[in-house]
Nucleic acid binder design. Structure first.
Lengths: 357, 357
DNA sequence: AGGGTGGCCTTGATCGATCCAATGACACCA
DNA sequence: TGGTGTCATTGGATCGATCAAGGCCACCCT
């Protein structure tokens, strides 16, 4: 990274530092009660007589008291923090989805009395970040987001008995013959999403609907693909020759769609991502075909791009707000009853219909 | 928000809870030294004799010890956390810029030994989030990002003597006749960015370059606009009739560009945002004009959209990685020497040239 | 009257690290 | 032998909250 050579101004003195904030003892003295009573006024108000409570609350208000987090954390062995690792800032729609999720998570956590602590993955070992936070008891739990193909985090956290909820189903554990996941998870039913998209296109009169997805070793990709085949076969339509599996780049989507248009001549495309769908739009542009009017296209993720590209890209939208709600509620359950793992939760995406279909 | 009706599985028992992590005393006992010596081994290793140090370090490694964050925080009155508020998850390029910044900030903070705590703004009072974290000493400092037009956060934090660094210059304080800012800040020189963009277009042979920006009450918008006028006037070119100030939406950009094409007949557009630039692309599409070949377009923010829209949107790119570096370093300075406010830092953006110019 | 009961509040101990002042070990020198 | 300075190490106090007991008092019951 090349450092930008900055233009700087001049330094100058600053106003004095803040006084130390009031403590429980300060409030207690002012209200004429003991520390414990103040503590109860905050954590178990119904243990106090109404008049005492009022007196304490007034003292709290006057002094602007708020419990010291560190002290409380030490005593209660709790931090009210949820740790979440964010990957390197690669550009891409997956990243945008994560950002949208983070927003929802922060919002939902706040309502549950938690804050979100972000940490970066060390370049090397992916678990060092988790390990450090865990051993220093800096967070109460984790939200793990990258559970695709055999990533080590989930297994490692399970082994450490660390409380965490996964956004993403435990693919390995769900295979027949394997044990159930030993951790709670929330996921979006990708197959249902692509099925929704395909059904939408079928309704519009299309019957030659192509699929452009990811390589076969992507569990998520194959899951999404299965929704397309299910919808097609459900109508008695063949899928042979209509599918392509490529890298998740615009160029790949462009090539794949060009090839498919030349061979199977589909009138519509369902894609595993908005990125691939953008590739299709490129191809249509090259050939003077109008998206929506001549050839329909549906993407996946409802990214910013899908919303602004002319004429608007129809896309499967993950209900990330709902995911966050279920993640937090699973987290609360986990922390309240550590002995029981809540069941996995599968949510259904929706379809944002735009000009491209 | 409509709750998605989830499909759930079955609950089942979970593995036993983790044992309590080792403490300083455990390490001390195992290494045959006192607690303080272990503490020194961690915080001031050079105070120990090499052989003692080695013994302690081995004990630390064997037990997998890591200092309890809460205890350390309580004693040192520090949390190693940087608080940052994120706004509601509105969709837009501004949001995407912030997300890119958050990534960089998390990364840079990690290197400085800090974590990033995200919190959501309460719907009502914008300072309650700050206030709560501050009074409970949950964070060491804040990064304030939304410093545009007289927002109350900066002034409020200053008054509270809260340590914070702003991403965004203190517009009010920089006006002549007003005091200097009393807090450190880092910003990107928007005018330099649009000047860069305009100069780029001038080099390409354009001389009728239009501006589409935000309404006049936007400080950032006027700043970016000034770069365009500066570049134009520098070449002795007039700007009258070539500018339009609208809302930051695609529709506005579309209308404004359509209007300008009909009146001033520019051969190129410089826009205050990628969103507006997308509006221009829409207009060009409507009229069968090819971006880049027939009419050049430059956006601002180098968003995801700019990168994927055909044929690629040339855009001013903010050096957010550098911003994060300077923000964190200002933060470190602030926490190390609270009595001195470092000077403001202004960084220069770059231009990501793509097919649209 | 004595003892039990429950409501309300207080006291002392504790969480696990760091700060502080003091002690021990050791070499060196008078 | 005793003094002195340096340096590693020690024990105790502390940060500010909560937990676990226990005290006080009014009230009720037999």
């Amino acid at each position: 990274m090349s450092r930008n050579e900055p233009v700087v101004g001049r330094a100058y003195p600053r106003l004095p530092m803040p006084v130390t904030p009031p403590t429980l003892a300060d409030v207690a003295e002012r209200a004429g009660v003991s520390r414990q009573t103040v503590s109860n006024a905050i954590n178990n108000p119904d243990l106090l007589r109404p008049d005492t409570l009022a007196r304490v609350q007034e003292a709290i208000a006057v002094l602007g008291y708020s419990p010291n987090r560190a002290a409380r954390n030490l005593r209660t062995r709790t931090s009210q923090l949820i740790g979440m690792r964010i990957g390197p800032a690669q550009e891409g729609t997956a990243n945008a989805t994560m950002d949208r999720f983070v927003h929802s998570l922060v919002e939902t956590s706040r309502e549950a009395g938690y804050h979100v602590l972000l940490f970066a993955g060390d370049g090397g070992d992916p678990v060092v970040g988790y390990d450090a936070l865990l051993r220093s008891t800096a967070v109460d739990a984790f939200v793990v987001t990258d559970t695709y193909l055999g990533n080590p985090q989930a297994a490692w956290l399970e082994e450490r008995r660390a409380p965490f909820v996964a956004f993403g189903r435990p693919w390995d554990a769900l295979r027949p013959g394997t044990d159930q996941a030993r951790h709670p998870w929330v996921d979006v039913d990708g197959a249902a999403g692509t099925e929704l998209a395909t059904a939408h296109l079928l309704e519009k009169g299309h019957d030659r609907i192509a699929w452009i997805g990811w390589r076969k070793d992507s569990r998520i990709g194959e899951d999404r693909r299965s929704g397309w085949t299910r919808a097609m076969h459900g109508r008695g339509l063949a899928t042979t020759g209509l599918a392509s599996r490529v890298e998740d780049t615009i160029a790949s989507g462009r090539e794949a769609s060009a090839h498919l248009l030349g061979s199977a001549r589909p009138s519509a495309f369902v894609c595993a991502s908005d990125t691939l769908a953008m590739g299709v739009l490129h191809t249509l542009g090259d050939r003077g075909l109008r998206p929506g009017a001549d050839v329909a296209v549906v993407g996946f993720d409802d990214s910013q791009v899908a919303q602004v590209v002319p004429p608007g890209l129809t896309s499967v939208r993950q209900p990330l707000e709902d995911v966050a709600v279920h993640v937090v509620s699973a987290l609360e359950g986990l922390l309240a009853h550590p002995a029981v793992v809540g069941p996995g939760v599968m949510l259904t995406p929706t379809l944002a219909v735009r000009g491209s279909s």
